[in-house]
Simulated scan of single mutants.
Amino acid sequence: MIVVTGATGNIGRVLVRRLLAEGAAVRALTRDPARAGLPAEAETVRADLTGADALEPLLAGAEALFLNLAAGGDHAAAALTEAAVRAGVRRIVLNSSMAVTDTPDDDAHHIARLHAGLERAVRDSGLEWTFVRGGNYATNALAWAPAIRTSGVVRDAHPDARGVPVHEADLADVAATALLDRSGAHLGQAYLVTGPAELTVAQQVAEIGRATGKETRVEQISEEAAAEAMAGPHFPKEAALELVRMFGRTVDAPAFPVSDAVEQITGRPARTFAQWARDHAADFS
């Protein structure tokens, strides 16, 4: 049995289907099973990881756990790690972040600090572990969908900021390989998982235009305005501004190299952003 947290998220939903296709028994955790829309073959279980309910029953009989900080926050993820030890879970595959560098810089960056702390908790648990360090998710581009649908104009502080966007299906495939691994080849590994090519924000917007047949462009705005637009109830403006400024630094040099981890782990090349845009064209139409 493999337990998947964040089962209705972008990565989790694909991961559930991938694991089922491989013949694995899957317990998918979600706040609202009635609206989850997951395959009937999965055991879909109601779970509010931020609540006061005991966590061990969610993990009963499980051999492995896919842990996603986004499913309940860092405190919930740490508590679930402790519960996994008590429940006899053998392995954790953590959806971490490429912001983690295993250097003192991790303590100076909001996103790196959260994920590095959780990585430490998983390491200290004594369980088998694999870290999937993504972060420049292609699905971040879905934030542009309302603007592209209405005007085709995306407003961004750094149109020339560079990244290597990764398809959520590739992250799910890497996670599935680690969860199902019987050879031990992926134990104790922290994989930097990227897409196959570096692209600027403007190039990504143009790819979405090609996939949808819409005329698209990027209009530059201030870092302050970009942070205001990004901030929300669970993402303070200070953290958003830190992220916007980090993107700005990639105009002159990419923050991360292109990784071949997807091909090395799954045996096939990473999906391109153009393919992601085609897969999600309906979201922008």
Score class of each variant (00 low, 15 high):
residue 209 G to L: 07
residue 193 V to N: 04
residue 141 A to Q: 06
residue 249 R to M: 10
residue 234 H to R: 15
residue 138 A to R: 01
residue 111 I to T: 11
residue 175 A to H: 01
residue 195 G to F: 12
residue 164 V to P: 01
residue 53 D to S: 10
residue 143 A to Q: 14
residue 223 E to I: 03
residue 60 A to N: 10
residue 61 G to I: 09
residue 231 A to I: 09
residue 259 S to C: 03
residue 162 R to Y: 08
residue 212 T to F: 09
residue 139 T to I: 03
residue 164 V to A: 15
residue 120 R to C: 10
residue 260 D to R: 11
residue 256 F to N: 06
residue 49 L to F: 10
residue 77 A to D: 01
residue 13 R to V: 00
residue 167 H to K: 06
residue 114 L to V: 13
residue 279 D to A: 07
residue 168 E to Y: 13
residue 163 G to S: 14
residue 254 P to L: 02
residue 117 G to P: 05
residue 31 R to G: 13
residue 103 T to R: 12
residue 194 T to Y: 06
residue 142 L to S: 06
residue 218 V to H: 01
residue 266 T to G: 08
residue 265 I to R: 05
residue 231 A to T: 12
residue 57 P to D: 05
residue 16 V to Q: 05
residue 207 E to W: 08
residue 224 E to G: 10
residue 150 T to R: 15
residue 127 L to Q: 12
residue 249 R to A: 15
residue 134 G to L: 01
residue 17 R to L: 11
residue 119 E to K: 11
residue 11 I to H: 01
residue 111 I to Y: 06
residue 247 F to W: 15
residue 85 V to A: 07
residue 150 T to K: 15
residue 175 A to N: 05
residue 267 G to I: 12
residue 178 A to G: 09
residue 133 R to G: 06
residue 123 R to Y: 10
residue 192 L to Q: 09
residue 106 D to I: 09
residue 251 V to R: 13
residue 172 A to G: 09
residue 263 E to I: 08
residue 196 P to M: 09
residue 245 R to L: 14
residue 203 Q to E: 15
residue 111 I to P: 00
residue 237 K to C: 02
residue 180 L to F: 01
residue 70 A to W: 08
residue 15 L to V: 08
residue 137 Y to M: 14
residue 118 L to S: 03
residue 283 D to L: 09
residue 188 G to T: 13
residue 220 Q to M: 13
residue 283 D to S: 15
residue 13 R to T: 10
residue 19 L to M: 09
residue 21 A to M: 06
residue 241 L to F: 04
residue 262 V to N: 01
residue 285 S to T: 15
residue 36 A to I: 06
residue 259 S to H: 02
residue 63 E to R: 15
residue 58 L to W: 05
residue 34 A to E: 13
residue 48 D to H: 15
residue 110 H to Q: 09
residue 76 A to S: 12
residue 146 P to I: 14
residue 67 L to R: 00
residue 275 Q to I: 12
residue 89 V to P: 03
residue 266 T to K: 04
residue 218 V to A: 03
residue 267 G to E: 01
residue 196 P to Y: 04
residue 84 A to C: 11
residue 188 G to A: 10
residue 214 K to E: 08
residue 64 A to N: 04
residue 56 E to S: 12
residue 63 E to C: 07
